[in-house]
């Protein structure tokens, strides 16, 4: 086996290894944990294309086809630059010649391809848990409240309770099916808070324990969702406290739940937070697309 063929095989394997990851995540239904929905098909088709490209080149690894591109070359002298291309050209174009032609395009060496492409992907696929740890959720803002003043400026008509009721579906019990993100961002604007305050609502998200400093009476849990724009790296974690009048539910952390209760707001250290009081929760299936595309 020549060095060029060996390089070709390693490059093919590296390309295939990169292609397998998105295809695996997609087929296992995990791609939504990694990417926003708009990237799912791109990742799948890209992964398949990488596998096809890798396999194609693997199958043709030993085949001599020349270096291919249109660099016209001298044929009366041997190239002697140091990046040698170890195949000979004998082209039948009127004047066959056999020379040591050497335009090297193999800038990478196989060790780099193995160490930087194949091994990291294998290791990361082995180590990932396909979701953030509790520590990362906290770091990404689980217990923080951000404000987004422009959220309420996207409609030209004034936002009112009537408009809210008109456009928000209700459950058979009369609870408004709010998005967690919608409630989260409602905090901070007194006019908007008045519209939401006391609203019977149902939210969906994942349950997690409340930050102890925000839970002095030990009657709260927190509902959260991960909101990503492109991929998990840019995700923000938005959380809304759930206050229970009865005992805390015995549901494991990170379980998907529906929570019913009444919307309320509280002021902590000068900042408004939305929460749901008098809550009842029950475990539910994870939605098909758990991450919102846009915050």
């Amino acid at each position: 086996m020549t060095k060029a063929t060996f390089n070709q095989i390693i490059s093919s394997l590296a390309t295939i290894s990169w292609g397998v990851v998105p295809v695996y995540l997609y087929t296992k239904g995990l791609i939504g944990e990694y990417l926003s929905e708009s990237f799912h098909l791109i990742a799948l088709s890209g992964g398949l294309a990488m596998i096809v490209l890798g396999l194609f080149n693997l199958l043709h690894a030993g085949r001599e086809v020349g270096c291919g591109h249109d660099h016209s070359h001298e044929h009366d002298h041997g190239h002697d630059h140091d990046h040698s291309h170890d195949h000979d050209h004998s082209h039948d174009h009127g004047h066959s010649h056999d020379h040591d032609h050497s335009h090297d395009h193999h800038e990478q060496n196989p060790v780099a391809a193995i160490c930087l492409m194949i091994i990291p992907v294998i290791l990361c696929t082995g180590f990932t848990k396909h979701e953030y740890s509790k520590e990362a959720l906290r770091w990404k803002g689980l217990y923080k409240q951000r404000t987004l003043k422009s959220l309420y400026s996207t409609y030209n008509t004034e936002f009112t309770r009537e408009l809210l009721e008109k456009r928000t579906p209700k459950t058979s019990e009369g609870n408004f099916l709010l998005q967690l993100t919608e409630l989260y961002w409602s905090a901070g604007d007194e006019k908007i808070m008045k519209i939401y305050d006391g609203l019977p609502a149902q939210l969906e998200g994942r349950l997690i324990e409340e930050e102890p400093t925000l839970n002095p009476d030990n009657n709260r849990k927190r509902l959260y969702r991960v909101v990503m724009t492109c991929c998990a790296a840019d995700a923000q974690v938005l959380g809304v406290p759930l206050e229970f009048s009865a005992s805390l539910p015995a549901i494991a952390d990170k379980t998907w739940i529906t929570a019913k209760g009444k919307v309320a707001f509280e002021l902590i250290d000068g900042q408004h937070f939305a929460y749901l009081r008098d809550c009842e929760v029950e475990a539910t299936e994870a939605p098909e697309t758990q991450n919102k595309k846009r915050p």
Binding site: V21, L25, I31, F39, S45, A49, M50, C124, T125, T128
Partner: peptide
Amino acid sequence: PWLPDFSFLFLSILVEGAPF
């Protein structure tokens, strides 16, 4: 949990950027 979190983020950026 540093390594699982790092791996999760690494793969997320990889599968986002590699197709392009």
